[in-house]
Design a protein around this nucleic acid. Sequence first.
DNA 1: CAGGATTCTCAGGCTATTCACAGATAGCCG
DNA 2: CGGCTATCTGTGAATAGCCTGAGAATCCTG
Lengths: 245, 245
Amino acid sequence: MKATSPHGRSELLRPDGSPVRVLVVDDESALADLLSMALRYEGWEVRTAGNGAEALRITRELRPDAVLLDIMLPDMDGLTLLGRVRNELPEVPVLFLTAKDAVEDRIAGLTAGGDDYVTKPFSLEEVVARLRGLLRRSGAAAARSESLLTVGDLVLDEDSHEVSRAGQEIHLTATEFELLRYLMRNPRRVLSKAQILDRVWSYDFGGQANVVELYISYLRRKIDAGRSPMIHTRRGAGYLIKPGE
Amino acid sequence: MKATSPHGRSELLRPDGSPVRVLVVDDESALADLLSMALRYEGWEVRTAGNGAEALRITRELRPDAVLLDIMLPDMDGLTLLGRVRNELPEVPVLFLTAKDAVEDRIAGLTAGGDDYVTKPFSLEEVVARLRGLLRRSGAAAARSESLLTVGDLVLDEDSHEVSRAGQEIHLTATEFELLRYLMRNPRRVLSKAQILDRVWSYDFGGQANVVELYISYLRRKIDAGRSPMIHTRRGAGYLIKPGE
DNA sequence: CAGGATTCTCAGGCTATTCACAGATAGCCG
DNA sequence: CGGCTATCTGTGAATAGCCTGAGAATCCTG
């Protein structure tokens, strides 16, 4: 059975019906807080650790369903920590946070086992989506739900990143895809430009607020072109998506 | 079960039936008082703090269901305070008050956790509506009520900002929407022009008092047009809305 | 490292919205 | 019925908010 989270979206639950448990390991507390807030809002139970020792303690105690791990840690190398965590919970899926330029190949090796990674600076939408993907695939989440989001005749596949309207394939860039996913995860709800910026753009984005308008414009061109519009502007409030007619 | 507030509107209650508790943090006492009055009128229990230290103390003591936080504080940076509050009450929803132009240069991640914000100068209707939205979604309020307001065949959706009468969609501007929401939240009750002005227009509005008449006129054109009128004038007293016939 | 795709800035243009003003209208009282 | 006042609403100007084209900068890919 699917439950409904505070904000009305369907959420992932553990097989016994309790909320999914996530451990966040990051030494930058601002980042840890940001992540923790976003994940809690998904309806998940979150614990944060600022170093390896703490992370291990919580791992034993909480037995999380997923771990979000920044591999640059002060006291203990992230990889060492990973080993110890794996010792405790061999099956737990891990989402790595890593700096952009960090040795890609090493990470690539790490993610071979079904884990995943996200580079800093990331967007919350991206982290949440990846984490959902890991949980979905790991079987920690009871409902091994579909990866499809549907609004009217518009379909978005979170796994394959494919989007189509009325059966016709639509190519989107990465940013367009994330924006659309955010809209589609909140259908019929007005989302302000600030909310969208906070969620879809990375936390260190310092640019003009009108990128949102710009990308809405791009999306409309690809999604609404000719057809009955699904993306609507609520002047002075924000944007929302809903099935056309 | 839903109780009824002093003025007859349905109100949000905590799961145990006690009133919702809100903490207001603002160093401008005039604003804090204004807000406090408006929120008390909603039937909520309100405490105000003028600085970060006080806010923290009250947070521990009161354990509020929501926090209204001005991010420009004298003693402690609003973000620092936010972190500490989150430390005490990880799940508490926060409504930020911020200057108009601050939004432009970025309030990274503020709305990330389902929080929300309102720019100064705001209208009380806006603040109350946002706060109600946060409470509704956070689950602090027992009645996880619909976002729909209904009077007769007139329906207003606070999430999608959509209004319809007898199933027929009606487009309203932002100001029209707020005015109608205020009327609909107080059905069959006469609201004076002064009350409406105080509530729907921002506190620094310096214009002619007849904007209210003007916007009532706009609303009638859109809502009552042709149909049996729902918006009524009580000459010398104000306006009220009630189901037509 | 070239070519293409993508992201983003900037600025012009446009429309919806807000609001002031003032004349028209309607209720109320004698 | 006449006059007074409260309310209604047409007109139009100023503005805010949004949209989008052009192009610079950056990133990716082979």
